[in-house]
Design a protein around this nucleic acid. Sequence first.
DNA 1: CCAAAAGTGTTATGGATACACCCATGA
DNA 2: TCATGGGTGTATCCATAACACTTTTGG
Lengths: 220, 220
Amino acid sequence: MPNYYNEQTKFYVSVDCAIFGYSDGILKLLIHKRPYDPGKGDWSLIGGFVEKDESIDDAAKRVLTEFTGLDKVYMRQLGAFGEVNRDPGERVISITYFALIDVAKYKKGKAQHTAEWVDMNLLPELIFDHDRMVSQSLKKIQSLIWEEPIAANLLPKLFTLTQLQRVYEVVLGKELDKRNYRRNVQEQGFLVKTNKIDKKTSKRGAALFQVNPLLAIENS
Amino acid sequence: MPNYYNEQTKFYVSVDCAIFGYSDGILKLLIHKRPYDPGKGDWSLIGGFVEKDESIDDAAKRVLTEFTGLDKVYMRQLGAFGEVNRDPGERVISITYFALIDVAKYKKGKAQHTAEWVDMNLLPELIFDHDRMVSQSLKKIQSLIWEEPIAANLLPKLFTLTQLQRVYEVVLGKELDKRNYRRNVQEQGFLVKTNKIDKKTSKRGAALFQVNPLLAIENS
DNA sequence: CCAAAAGTGTTATGGATACACCCATGA
DNA sequence: TCATGGGTGTATCCATAACACTTTTGG
Protein backbone atom coordinates (compact mmCIF):
# COMPACT_ATOMS: atom_id res chain seq x y z
CA MET A 1 0.00 0.00 0.00
CA PRO A 2 1.72 3.14 -1.24
CA ASN A 3 0.25 5.54 1.26
CA TYR A 4 -2.20 3.94 3.57
CA TYR A 5 -3.32 7.20 5.12
CA ASN A 6 -4.72 8.67 1.93
CA GLU A 7 -7.58 6.23 1.80
CA GLN A 8 -8.94 7.42 5.13
CA THR A 9 -11.63 9.90 6.02
CA LYS A 10 -10.74 13.15 7.69
CA PHE A 11 -12.78 14.93 10.35
CA TYR A 12 -13.24 18.33 11.85
CA VAL A 13 -11.83 18.24 15.36
CA SER A 14 -12.83 20.84 17.90
CA VAL A 15 -11.90 21.58 21.47
CA ASP A 16 -14.58 22.53 23.98
CA CYS A 17 -13.56 24.03 27.29
CA ALA A 18 -15.56 23.87 30.48
CA ILE A 19 -14.14 26.98 32.15
CA PHE A 20 -14.97 27.19 35.83
CA GLY A 21 -14.69 30.31 37.92
CA TYR A 22 -15.57 31.38 41.42
CA SER A 23 -16.92 34.62 42.79
CA ASP A 24 -19.26 35.76 45.53
CA GLY A 25 -19.21 32.30 47.04
CA ILE A 26 -20.58 30.73 43.88
CA LEU A 27 -19.11 28.31 41.38
CA LYS A 28 -19.61 29.63 37.87
CA LEU A 29 -19.16 28.46 34.33
CA LEU A 30 -18.19 30.60 31.37
CA ILE A 31 -20.62 30.02 28.53
CA HIS A 32 -21.62 32.02 25.52
CA LYS A 33 -24.32 32.32 22.93
CA ARG A 34 -23.27 30.42 19.88
CA PRO A 35 -22.77 32.90 17.04
CA TYR A 36 -23.53 30.65 14.09
CA ASP A 37 -25.86 27.93 13.00
CA PRO A 38 -26.79 25.29 13.85
CA GLY A 39 -27.92 26.35 17.28
CA LYS A 40 -27.22 30.04 16.76
CA GLY A 41 -28.08 31.88 19.97
CA ASP A 42 -28.10 28.78 22.14
CA TRP A 43 -25.82 28.49 25.12
CA SER A 44 -22.59 26.68 24.47
CA LEU A 45 -19.24 25.99 26.04
CA ILE A 46 -16.28 27.97 24.85
CA GLY A 47 -14.78 26.15 21.92
CA GLY A 48 -13.03 26.26 18.61
CA PHE A 49 -11.52 24.11 15.93
CA VAL A 50 -8.15 22.50 16.13
CA GLU A 51 -5.85 24.05 13.57
CA LYS A 52 -3.39 22.51 11.22
CA ASP A 53 -0.14 22.81 13.09
CA GLU A 54 -1.13 22.80 16.72
CA SER A 55 -1.56 19.97 19.16
CA ILE A 56 -4.98 19.48 20.70
CA ASP A 57 -3.64 20.71 24.04
CA ASP A 58 -2.32 23.83 22.35
CA ALA A 59 -5.65 24.34 20.64
CA ALA A 60 -7.41 24.24 23.99
CA LYS A 61 -4.92 26.73 25.45
CA ARG A 62 -5.31 29.03 22.48
CA VAL A 63 -9.10 28.97 22.68
CA LEU A 64 -9.00 29.64 26.38
CA THR A 65 -6.63 32.55 25.91
CA GLU A 66 -8.71 34.01 23.09
CA PHE A 67 -11.82 34.00 25.22
CA THR A 68 -10.39 34.99 28.60
CA GLY A 69 -7.15 36.86 28.01
CA LEU A 70 -5.43 34.40 30.35
CA ASP A 71 -2.63 31.98 29.82
CA LYS A 72 -0.82 29.57 32.13
CA VAL A 73 -4.14 28.34 33.39
CA TYR A 74 -4.87 25.02 35.03
CA MET A 75 -6.43 22.90 32.33
CA ARG A 76 -6.82 19.17 31.82
CA GLN A 77 -8.31 16.98 29.15
CA LEU A 78 -11.59 15.32 30.00
CA GLY A 79 -11.93 13.12 26.93
CA ALA A 80 -13.24 12.88 23.42
CA PHE A 81 -16.86 13.09 22.35
CA GLY A 82 -17.49 11.54 19.01
CA GLU A 83 -21.09 10.59 18.36
CA VAL A 84 -21.83 10.86 14.66
CA ASN A 85 -24.60 13.40 15.03
CA ARG A 86 -23.50 15.22 18.14
CA ASP A 87 -23.20 18.36 16.05
CA PRO A 88 -26.12 18.41 13.62
CA GLY A 89 -24.31 20.82 11.33
CA GLU A 90 -21.36 18.67 10.42
CA ARG A 91 -19.51 15.66 11.74
CA VAL A 92 -17.24 17.13 14.39
CA ILE A 93 -15.24 15.20 16.95
CA SER A 94 -14.73 17.24 20.09
CA ILE A 95 -11.97 16.94 22.63
CA THR A 96 -13.18 18.38 25.90
CA TYR A 97 -11.05 20.19 28.46
CA PHE A 98 -11.83 21.74 31.78
CA ALA A 99 -10.11 24.74 33.30
CA LEU A 100 -10.16 26.57 36.60
CA ILE A 101 -9.50 30.29 36.56
CA ASP A 102 -9.66 33.33 38.77
CA VAL A 103 -12.69 35.30 37.60
CA ALA A 104 -11.06 38.53 38.74
CA LYS A 105 -8.32 38.07 36.16
CA TYR A 106 -10.78 37.37 33.36
CA LYS A 107 -10.86 39.84 30.48
CA LYS A 108 -13.54 39.64 27.87
CA GLY A 109 -12.00 38.46 24.65
CA LYS A 110 -13.61 36.87 21.63
CA ALA A 111 -17.35 36.60 22.22
CA GLN A 112 -17.22 39.62 24.44
CA HIS A 113 -20.83 40.44 23.91
CA THR A 114 -22.22 37.00 24.45
CA ALA A 115 -19.98 35.32 27.04
CA GLU A 116 -21.21 35.16 30.61
CA TRP A 117 -20.29 33.69 33.94
CA VAL A 118 -23.30 31.67 35.00
CA ASP A 119 -24.03 30.20 38.41
CA MET A 120 -23.50 26.45 38.14
CA ASN A 121 -26.73 25.93 40.04
CA LEU A 122 -28.69 27.96 37.52
CA LEU A 123 -27.11 26.63 34.37
CA PRO A 124 -29.35 26.83 31.31
CA GLU A 125 -29.51 23.90 28.97
CA LEU A 126 -26.43 23.79 26.75
CA ILE A 127 -26.16 22.83 23.13
CA PHE A 128 -25.33 19.34 21.82
CA ASP A 129 -23.57 17.18 24.40
CA HIS A 130 -22.14 20.11 26.34
CA ASP A 131 -24.24 19.33 29.41
CA ARG A 132 -22.55 15.95 29.71
CA MET A 133 -19.16 17.57 29.24
CA VAL A 134 -19.87 19.91 32.14
CA SER A 135 -21.15 17.30 34.54
CA GLN A 136 -18.28 14.94 33.78
CA SER A 137 -15.80 17.78 34.20
CA LEU A 138 -17.21 18.70 37.57
CA LYS A 139 -17.03 15.10 38.73
CA LYS A 140 -13.40 14.89 37.69
CA ILE A 141 -12.59 18.15 39.47
CA GLN A 142 -14.27 16.82 42.60
CA SER A 143 -12.15 13.72 42.49
CA LEU A 144 -8.94 15.71 41.94
CA ILE A 145 -9.51 18.46 44.48
CA TRP A 146 -7.92 16.61 47.38
CA GLU A 147 -5.18 15.11 45.19
CA GLU A 148 -3.73 18.20 43.56
CA PRO A 149 -3.66 21.86 44.59
CA ILE A 150 -6.22 22.82 42.02
CA ALA A 151 -8.80 24.64 44.12
CA ALA A 152 -6.56 27.66 44.59
CA ASN A 153 -6.64 28.24 40.84
CA LEU A 154 -10.09 29.70 41.37
CA LEU A 155 -8.73 32.35 43.76
CA PRO A 156 -6.25 35.23 43.55
CA LYS A 157 -2.63 34.43 44.26
CA LEU A 158 -3.07 35.23 47.94
CA PHE A 159 -6.08 33.93 49.82
CA THR A 160 -7.22 33.06 53.30
CA LEU A 161 -7.98 29.55 54.43
CA THR A 162 -11.61 30.49 54.89
CA GLN A 163 -11.86 31.69 51.30
CA LEU A 164 -10.33 28.45 50.10
CA GLN A 165 -12.73 26.49 52.26
CA ARG A 166 -15.68 28.09 50.47
CA VAL A 167 -14.14 26.99 47.17
CA TYR A 168 -13.90 23.42 48.38
CA GLU A 169 -17.48 23.61 49.58
CA VAL A 170 -18.99 24.90 46.36
CA VAL A 171 -16.99 22.47 44.26
CA LEU A 172 -17.87 19.48 46.42
CA GLY A 173 -21.42 20.69 47.02
CA LYS A 174 -21.29 20.15 50.76
CA GLU A 175 -20.21 21.95 53.88
CA LEU A 176 -16.93 21.04 55.49
CA ASP A 177 -15.88 21.06 59.10
CA LYS A 178 -13.50 23.96 59.56
CA ARG A 179 -10.96 22.17 61.72
CA ASN A 180 -10.90 18.99 59.70
CA TYR A 181 -10.66 20.94 56.46
CA ARG A 182 -7.76 23.01 57.78
CA ARG A 183 -5.89 19.99 58.97
CA ASN A 184 -6.41 18.17 55.65
CA VAL A 185 -5.50 21.06 53.42
CA GLN A 186 -2.40 21.89 55.40
CA GLU A 187 -1.24 18.29 55.60
CA GLN A 188 -1.18 18.17 51.82
CA GLY A 189 1.74 20.56 51.88
CA PHE A 190 0.46 22.53 48.90
CA LEU A 191 0.05 25.77 50.81
CA VAL A 192 2.52 28.13 52.33
CA LYS A 193 1.59 30.82 54.81
CA THR A 194 2.81 34.27 53.85
CA ASN A 195 3.48 36.98 56.39
CA LYS A 196 0.71 39.08 54.92
CA ILE A 197 -2.61 39.58 56.63
CA ASP A 198 -5.97 40.08 55.01
CA LYS A 199 -8.01 42.71 56.85
CA LYS A 200 -10.89 42.97 54.39
CA THR A 201 -12.96 40.03 55.43
CA SER A 202 -12.56 40.18 59.18
CA LYS A 203 -11.74 42.60 61.93
CA ARG A 204 -9.18 40.37 63.46
CA GLY A 205 -7.46 39.71 60.14
CA ALA A 206 -6.63 36.38 58.56
CA ALA A 207 -3.32 35.00 57.37
CA LEU A 208 -2.88 35.00 53.61
CA PHE A 209 -1.66 31.80 51.98
CA GLN A 210 -0.41 30.94 48.54
CA VAL A 211 0.25 27.74 46.68
CA ASN A 212 3.79 26.52 47.15
CA PRO A 213 5.49 28.11 44.13
CA LEU A 214 7.52 24.96 43.57
CA LEU A 215 4.33 23.16 42.70
CA ALA A 216 3.17 25.72 40.16
CA ILE A 217 0.86 23.36 38.36
CA GLU A 218 -0.87 25.45 35.76
CA ASN A 219 -0.61 23.90 32.37
CA SER A 220 1.62 21.04 31.31
CA MET B 1 -20.61 33.48 7.70
CA PRO B 2 -22.32 31.16 5.25
CA ASN B 3 -20.76 27.91 6.38
CA TYR B 4 -18.31 28.37 9.14
CA TYR B 5 -17.20 24.76 9.13
CA ASN B 6 -15.80 24.81 5.61
CA GLU B 7 -12.94 27.07 6.56
CA GLN B 8 -11.57 24.54 9.02
CA THR B 9 -8.88 21.92 8.74
CA LYS B 10 -9.78 18.24 8.85
CA PHE B 11 -7.74 15.51 10.47
CA TYR B 12 -7.27 11.80 10.35
CA VAL B 13 -8.67 10.36 13.55
CA SER B 14 -7.66 6.91 14.73
CA VAL B 15 -8.58 4.71 17.63
CA ASP B 16 -5.90 2.79 19.48
CA CYS B 17 -6.91 0.00 21.81
CA ALA B 18 -4.88 -1.24 24.75
CA ILE B 19 -6.31 -4.75 24.92
CA PHE B 20 -5.47 -6.53 28.14
CA GLY B 21 -5.77 -10.24 28.69
CA TYR B 22 -4.88 -12.70 31.38
CA SER B 23 -3.52 -16.22 31.21
CA ASP B 24 -1.19 -18.43 33.20
CA GLY B 25 -1.22 -15.96 36.05
CA ILE B 26 0.16 -13.18 33.88
CA LEU B 27 -1.32 -9.94 32.65
CA LYS B 28 -0.82 -9.59 28.92
CA LEU B 29 -1.29 -7.02 26.24
CA LEU B 30 -2.26 -7.67 22.64
CA ILE B 31 0.17 -5.92 20.32
CA HIS B 32 1.15 -6.42 16.74
CA LYS B 33 3.84 -5.59 14.25
CA ARG B 34 2.79 -2.54 12.34
CA PRO B 35 2.24 -3.57 8.72
CA TYR B 36 2.99 -0.26 7.03
CA ASP B 37 5.29 2.70 7.20
CA PRO B 38 6.26 4.68 9.11
CA GLY B 39 7.39 2.24 11.73
CA LYS B 40 6.69 -0.85 9.68
CA GLY B 41 7.57 -3.89 11.74
CA ASP B 42 7.61 -2.03 15.06
CA TRP B 43 5.34 -3.06 17.89
CA SER B 44 2.11 -1.14 18.10
CA LEU B 45 -1.23 -1.21 19.82
CA ILE B 46 -4.19 -2.49 17.91
CA GLY B 47 -5.71 0.41 16.07
CA GLY B 48 -7.49 1.73 13.05
CA PHE B 49 -8.98 4.81 11.53
CA VAL B 50 -12.36 6.20 12.44
CA GLU B 51 -14.66 5.88 9.46
CA LYS B 52 -17.12 8.29 8.02
CA ASP B 53 -20.37 7.21 9.60
CA GLU B 54 -19.38 5.65 12.86
CA SER B 55 -18.93 7.15 16.28
CA ILE B 56 -15.51 6.95 17.87
CA ASP B 57 -16.84 4.38 20.35
CA ASP B 58 -18.17 2.29 17.48
CA ALA B 59 -14.84 2.58 15.70
CA ALA B 60 -13.07 1.22 18.75
CA LYS B 61 -15.56 -1.65 19.01
CA ARG B 62 -15.17 -2.43 15.34
CA VAL B 63 -11.39 -2.47 15.53
CA LEU B 64 -11.49 -4.66 18.59
CA THR B 65 -13.85 -7.11 16.91
CA GLU B 66 -11.77 -7.18 13.74
CA PHE B 67 -8.66 -8.11 15.66
CA THR B 68 -10.07 -10.44 18.28
CA GLY B 69 -13.31 -11.88 16.96
CA LEU B 70 -15.02 -10.67 20.13
CA ASP B 71 -17.84 -8.26 20.71
CA LYS B 72 -19.62 -7.10 23.85
CA VAL B 73 -16.31 -6.53 25.49
CA TYR B 74 -15.58 -4.25 28.40
CA MET B 75 -14.02 -1.17 26.87
CA ARG B 76 -13.62 2.42 28.02
CA GLN B 77 -12.15 5.54 26.56
CA LEU B 78 -8.87 6.69 28.02
CA GLY B 79 -8.54 10.00 26.22
CA ALA B 80 -7.25 11.73 23.13
CA PHE B 81 -3.62 12.00 22.08
CA GLY B 82 -3.01 14.85 19.73
CA GLU B 83 0.60 15.99 19.54
CA VAL B 84 1.33 17.33 16.08
CA ASN B 85 4.11 14.88 15.29
CA ARG B 86 3.02 11.90 17.34
CA ASP B 87 2.71 9.97 14.10
CA PRO B 88 5.60 10.98 11.85
CA GLY B 89 3.78 9.79 8.75
CA GLU B 90 0.82 12.12 8.88
CA ARG B 91 -1.01 14.25 11.37
CA VAL B 92 -3.28 11.79 13.15
CA ILE B 93 -5.27 12.42 16.30
CA SER B 94 -5.75 9.23 18.25
CA ILE B 95 -8.52 8.40 20.69
CA THR B 96 -7.30 5.70 23.00
CA TYR B 97 -9.42 2.96 24.54
CA PHE B 98 -8.62 0.12 26.86
CA ALA B 99 -10.34 -3.24 26.94
CA LEU B 100 -10.28 -6.31 29.13
CA ILE B 101 -10.94 -9.64 27.49
CA ASP B 102 -10.78 -13.33 28.16
CA VAL B 103 -7.76 -14.60 26.25
CA ALA B 104 -9.39 -18.01 25.89
CA LYS B 105 -12.14 -16.48 23.78
CA TYR B 106 -9.68 -14.65 21.54
CA LYS B 107 -9.60 -15.63 17.87
CA LYS B 108 -6.92 -14.33 15.61
CA GLY B 109 -8.45 -11.88 13.21
CA LYS B 110 -6.87 -9.14 11.17
CA ALA B 111 -3.14 -9.14 11.80
CA GLN B 112 -3.24 -12.81 12.52
CA HIS B 113 0.37 -13.31 11.66
CA THR B 114 1.74 -10.43 13.63
CA ALA B 115 -0.47 -10.05 16.69
CA GLU B 116 0.75 -11.45 19.98
CA TRP B 117 -0.15 -11.56 23.61
CA VAL B 118 2.83 -10.19 25.44
CA ASP B 119 3.59 -10.34 29.15
CA MET B 120 3.05 -6.83 30.53
CA ASN B 121 6.29 -7.20 32.46
CA LEU B 122 8.25 -7.93 29.31
CA LEU B 123 6.66 -5.38 27.04
CA PRO B 124 8.88 -4.23 24.18
CA GLU B 125 9.03 -0.58 23.33
CA LEU B 126 5.96 0.48 21.41
CA ILE B 127 5.67 2.89 18.56
CA PHE B 128 4.85 6.60 18.86
CA ASP B 129 3.10 7.45 22.14
CA HIS B 130 1.68 3.96 22.64
CA ASP B 131 3.77 3.35 25.74
CA ARG B 132 2.08 6.25 27.46
CA MET B 133 -1.30 4.99 26.34
CA VAL B 134 -0.59 1.64 27.95
CA SER B 135 0.70 2.97 31.25
CA GLN B 136 -2.17 5.42 31.58
CA SER B 137 -4.65 2.68 30.75
CA LEU B 138 -3.23 0.40 33.39
CA LYS B 139 -3.41 3.15 35.98
CA LYS B 140 -7.02 3.75 35.14
CA ILE B 141 -7.84 0.04 35.35
CA GLN B 142 -6.16 -0.09 38.74
CA SER B 143 -8.27 2.76 39.99
CA LEU B 144 -11.47 1.20 38.64
CA ILE B 145 -10.92 -2.37 39.73
CA TRP B 146 -12.49 -1.96 43.17
CA GLU B 147 -15.22 0.33 41.85
CA GLU B 148 -16.66 -1.76 39.06
CA PRO B 149 -16.76 -5.49 38.40
CA ILE B 150 -14.20 -5.26 35.64
CA ALA B 151 -11.61 -7.79 36.75
CA ALA B 152 -13.86 -10.72 35.88
CA ASN B 153 -13.80 -9.62 32.24
CA LEU B 154 -10.35 -11.19 32.08
CA LEU B 155 -11.72 -14.58 33.09
CA PRO B 156 -14.20 -17.08 31.67
CA LYS B 157 -17.81 -16.67 32.66
CA LEU B 158 -17.38 -18.98 35.65
CA PHE B 159 -14.36 -18.62 37.90
CA THR B 160 -13.22 -19.34 41.40
CA LEU B 161 -12.45 -16.67 43.95
CA THR B 162 -8.82 -17.71 43.93
CA GLN B 163 -8.58 -17.26 40.18
CA LEU B 164 -10.10 -13.82 40.50
CA GLN B 165 -7.68 -12.98 43.29
CA ARG B 166 -4.74 -13.65 40.98
CA VAL B 167 -6.27 -11.25 38.48
CA TYR B 168 -6.51 -8.54 41.12
CA GLU B 169 -2.93 -9.22 42.10
CA VAL B 170 -1.43 -9.01 38.64
CA VAL B 171 -3.43 -5.90 37.80
CA LEU B 172 -2.54 -4.14 41.02
CA GLY B 173 1.00 -5.49 41.04
CA LYS B 174 0.87 -6.63 44.65
CA GLU B 175 -0.20 -9.59 46.68
CA LEU B 176 -3.48 -9.47 48.52
CA ASP B 177 -4.53 -11.03 51.78
CA LYS B 178 -6.91 -13.86 50.96
CA ARG B 179 -9.44 -13.17 53.68
CA ASN B 180 -9.49 -9.43 53.24
CA TYR B 181 -9.74 -9.77 49.47
CA ARG B 182 -12.65 -12.19 49.77
CA ARG B 183 -14.51 -9.97 52.18
CA ASN B 184 -14.00 -6.91 49.96
CA VAL B 185 -14.91 -8.54 46.70
CA GLN B 186 -18.01 -10.17 48.13
CA GLU B 187 -19.17 -7.01 49.88
CA GLN B 188 -19.24 -5.26 46.51
CA GLY B 189 -22.16 -7.44 45.56
CA PHE B 190 -20.88 -7.92 42.00
CA LEU B 191 -20.47 -11.66 42.33
CA VAL B 192 -22.96 -14.45 42.69
CA LYS B 193 -22.04 -17.94 43.73
CA THR B 194 -23.27 -20.63 41.39
CA ASN B 195 -23.94 -24.16 42.53
CA LYS B 196 -21.17 -25.43 40.29
CA ILE B 197 -17.86 -26.64 41.60
CA ASP B 198 -14.49 -26.41 39.92
CA LYS B 199 -12.47 -29.56 40.47
CA LYS B 200 -9.61 -28.76 38.13
CA THR B 201 -7.51 -26.58 40.34
CA SER B 202 -7.90 -28.33 43.65
CA LYS B 203 -8.74 -31.66 45.11
CA ARG B 204 -11.35 -30.33 47.42
CA GLY B 205 -13.02 -28.29 44.67
CA ALA B 206 -13.82 -24.59 44.69
CA ALA B 207 -17.13 -22.84 44.24
CA LEU B 208 -17.57 -21.19 40.86
CA PHE B 209 -18.79 -17.63 40.78
CA GLN B 210 -20.04 -15.36 38.04
CA VAL B 211 -20.68 -11.66 37.76
CA ASN B 212 -24.21 -10.76 38.72
CA PRO B 213 -25.92 -10.88 35.31
CA LEU B 214 -27.96 -7.81 36.19
CA LEU B 215 -24.76 -5.80 36.17
CA ALA B 216 -23.59 -7.03 32.78
CA ILE B 217 -21.29 -4.11 32.18
CA GLU B 218 -19.59 -4.91 28.90
CA ASN B 219 -19.83 -2.05 26.49
CA SER B 220 -22.09 0.97 26.74
C1' DC C 1 -18.36 46.21 74.60
C1' DC C 2 -19.91 43.30 71.34
C1' DA C 3 -20.47 41.26 66.84
C1' DA C 4 -17.95 38.67 63.50
C1' DA C 5 -14.60 35.93 61.68
C1' DA C 6 -9.94 33.50 62.91
C1' DG C 7 -7.79 30.09 64.95
C1' DT C 8 -6.93 25.78 67.53
C1' DG C 9 -7.08 19.66 69.87
C1' DT C 10 -9.23 15.79 71.41
C1' DT C 11 -12.41 11.97 71.41
C1' DA C 12 -15.13 8.65 68.95
C1' DT C 13 -16.09 5.84 65.18
C1' DG C 14 -15.53 2.92 61.31
C1' DG C 15 -12.86 1.01 57.69
C1' DA C 16 -8.53 -1.24 56.57
C1' DT C 17 -4.97 -4.37 57.79
C1' DA C 18 -2.70 -8.24 59.88
C1' DC C 19 -2.95 -12.74 61.09
C1' DA C 20 -3.66 -18.84 61.61
C1' DC C 21 -6.19 -22.69 61.56
C1' DC C 22 -9.48 -26.47 59.98
C1' DC C 23 -11.65 -28.73 55.78
C1' DA C 24 -12.20 -31.80 51.89
C1' DT C 25 -10.26 -34.72 48.61
C1' DG C 26 -7.26 -37.10 45.03
C1' DA C 27 -3.30 -39.44 44.66
C1' DT D 1 -2.23 -40.38 55.10
C1' DC D 2 -0.68 -36.44 53.47
C1' DA D 3 -0.07 -32.70 50.32
C1' DT D 4 -2.77 -29.21 48.15
C1' DG D 5 -5.65 -25.54 47.69
C1' DG D 6 -10.46 -23.98 49.85
C1' DG D 7 -12.60 -21.70 53.13
C1' DT D 8 -13.44 -18.88 57.44
C1' DG D 9 -13.24 -14.58 62.14
C1' DT D 10 -11.15 -11.48 65.22
C1' DA D 11 -8.08 -8.06 67.22
C1' DT D 12 -5.42 -3.99 66.12
C1' DC D 13 -4.48 0.12 63.93
C1' DC D 14 -5.08 4.19 61.49
C1' DA D 15 -7.68 7.54 59.06
C1' DT D 16 -11.84 10.12 59.06
C1' DA D 17 -15.60 12.48 61.43
C1' DA D 18 -17.66 14.93 65.17
C1' DC D 19 -17.43 18.49 68.18
C1' DA D 20 -16.78 24.01 71.23
C1' DC D 21 -14.35 27.47 72.94
C1' DT D 22 -10.92 31.49 72.97
C1' DT D 23 -8.83 35.39 70.38
C1' DT D 24 -8.71 39.75 68.06
C1' DT D 25 -10.38 44.11 66.69
C1' DG D 26 -13.32 47.57 64.10
C1' DG D 27 -17.27 49.91 64.78
